[in-house]
Write a protein that binds this DNA or RNA. Structure first.
Ligand SMILES: NC(=O)c1ccc[n+]([C@@H]2O[C@H](COP(=O)([O-])OP(=O)(O)OC[C@H]3O[C@@H](n4cnc5c(N)ncnc54)[C@H](O)[C@@H]3O)[C@@H](O)[C@H]2O)c1
Ligand SMILES: NC(=O)c1ccc[n+]([C@@H]2O[C@H](COP(=O)([O-])OP(=O)(O)OC[C@H]3O[C@@H](n4cnc5c(N)ncnc54)[C@H](O)[C@@H]3O)[C@@H](O)[C@H]2O)c1
Lengths: 230, 230
DNA sequence: ACGCCCTTGTGAATGTATGCACAAAGTGGG
DNA sequence: CCCACTTTGTGCATACATTCACAAGGGCGT
């Protein structure tokens, strides 16, 4: 029997932690550009807008990359978080639905700078297919499977109307894509092993409206400690 | 139809529940358009993509609006959730930053249909100010305070580059806006009582990349039960 | 070499969320 | 009117997340 204790980076980072790692990464990159060599958990937490104990616990899931009495080496921590997030390799992204939103996404410069390459734009509308958008030619949706295979697409972005989203998703999954980012306001059904994340503007607005209403309601009411997030 | 007197439950709906209410609302509206008069927690949960016990517990925070042995009246529940979320009134939204993303948002039809009215578009670039976008004339950022007061803006949307976001946010807050939706990749600092929600594409992609990498890594590894969300 | 001071990493406590399982409550048939 | 059946609403157990508080560890000045 082999030893149990020697597990340097046991697999199993809490989902809540994973969701914050990109935040820390961004804060660290800002510090790095400013030339800061090391940073304490207190400072970094302040920049990232979280509690410092939470930050330390989050980082402790990756390993012991800090130095007591000093803090964390900024560049080293950037590397470690990048590696953990899988940003040391490039990911190919295909965007389906080149309308208002799809075009904005395609023209967004912040993609490539973080290791995500827009490999293809696809649409069903003949009036759109063939257009040049952000230096790419829009392909026809029928070529999805071919494009996914050829470009090694691993992340599919859906920016079609809601009615078309499940169909596009199914084709992505059928073509072997196991990560989907969905902008359409529908719940996508996918088999186990496929990750779906959604960006849903209406939901965000409705959550804000809920709290806004509550602020207006509660005149003279008791305490209204709002959980803020940023 | 209202057989039961509207009994507002004790204030204090869990944040996780609030975040799911818009999902239930959307599912119910789909059912309503299909003419379904009542729905069981099991069915509704299935459409919304959640566990049925969770759905029942969520709804129980609003009150007892179901009928045992039957289910929930679709229209009545739509009304109750809408009221709880504050969608029985209209909310005025101002969008600052009319670039790629701001234009896509302005042209997005799904706004008005849910009680959110785009009251103003503002930008700092003289080349953009004065443009007609989605039937509105783009105003100058200097008029922010005036516009917020005149149009009773209660939700501010920030779609400027990251560097400008905190400044715009401060002006919103100074003008009395207490709910902000931020698309810029920065952590906004706001005083207590102001809610900020963010939509951050890069973070979503990085989270997907993390799981994608893990799927690829774990050949022969142990179980890989992925927590899916949709 | 030694001890002081700073900051990490983590045990423990607390708070929040999820999901099971079932009694209570309502419907409809006979 | 009662009984069989369905489905809600919730107590309880468990899992996950956050925060506190501090001992352990490392650098640095003397
Ligand atoms: N525009 C926004 O700001 C915004 C905000 C929130 C949500 N959304 C959602 O994002 C999605 C896209 O919004 P939009 O404003 O860009 O819409 P849009 O109508 O401008 O663009 C949709 C595009 O998808 C294409 N399309 C339709 N069916 C297709 C199919 N089966 N396969 C491939 N392409 C197909 C259309 O040809 C069109 O080019 C919608 O679901 C919308 O609800 C948009
Ligand atoms: N385009 C996307 O798909 C996308 C995706 C994710 C995040 N974002 C983020 O959304 C934001 C906007 O992106 P975009 O692609 O629309 O950028 P953009 O450059 O096309 O548009 C930005 C607009 O903001 C205006 N602006 C700049 N400073 C301003 C100020 N102080 N006050 C008012 N207006 C000001 C500019 O004049 C410009 O019109 C950025 O922070 C970007 O990182 C965009």
């Amino acid at each position: 029997m082999t030893r149990r204790p020697p597990r340097p980076r046991e697999r199993g980072i809490p989902e809540a932690t994973v969701a914050r790692l990109p935040l820390y990464l961004r804060a660290l990159q800002a510090l790095d550009e400013r030339g800061t060599p090391t940073v304490s958990s207190e400072e970094l937490a302040s920049v990232a807008g979280v509690n410092s104990a939470k930050l330390r616990k989050d980082l402790s899931h990756l390993g012991s990359y800090g130095t007591r009495g000093v803090g964390y080496d900024v560049e080293y921590l950037i590397y470690q978080i990048s590696r953990e997030l899988g940003l040391t390799q490039d990911w190919s992204v295909a965007i389906v639905g080149v309308g208002n939103l799809g075009r904005a996404l395609a023209n967004y410069g912040g993609f490539g700078t973080r290791g995500f390459r827009i490999a293809a734009l696809l649409d069903a509308d003949p009036a759109v297919v063939g257009d040049a958008v952000a230096g790419l030619r829009v392909g026809h949706i029928d070529s999805l499977e071919e494009v996914v295979a050829r470009e090694h697409v691993s992340i599919g972005v859906i920016a079609t109307p809601a009615a078309a989203a499940q169909g596009v998703c199914d084709r992505f999954v059928g073509a072997g894509v196991t990560s989907v980012l969905n902008f359409a306001p529908v719940v996508l059904n996918v088999p186990d092993g496929v990750d779906v994340r959604k960006v849903d503007l209406s939901i965000e607005l409705q959550i804000l409206a809920f709290h806004e209403q509550r602020k207006a309601d509660g005149r003279g009411g008791p305490e209204w400690i709002e959980a803020l997030e940023a």
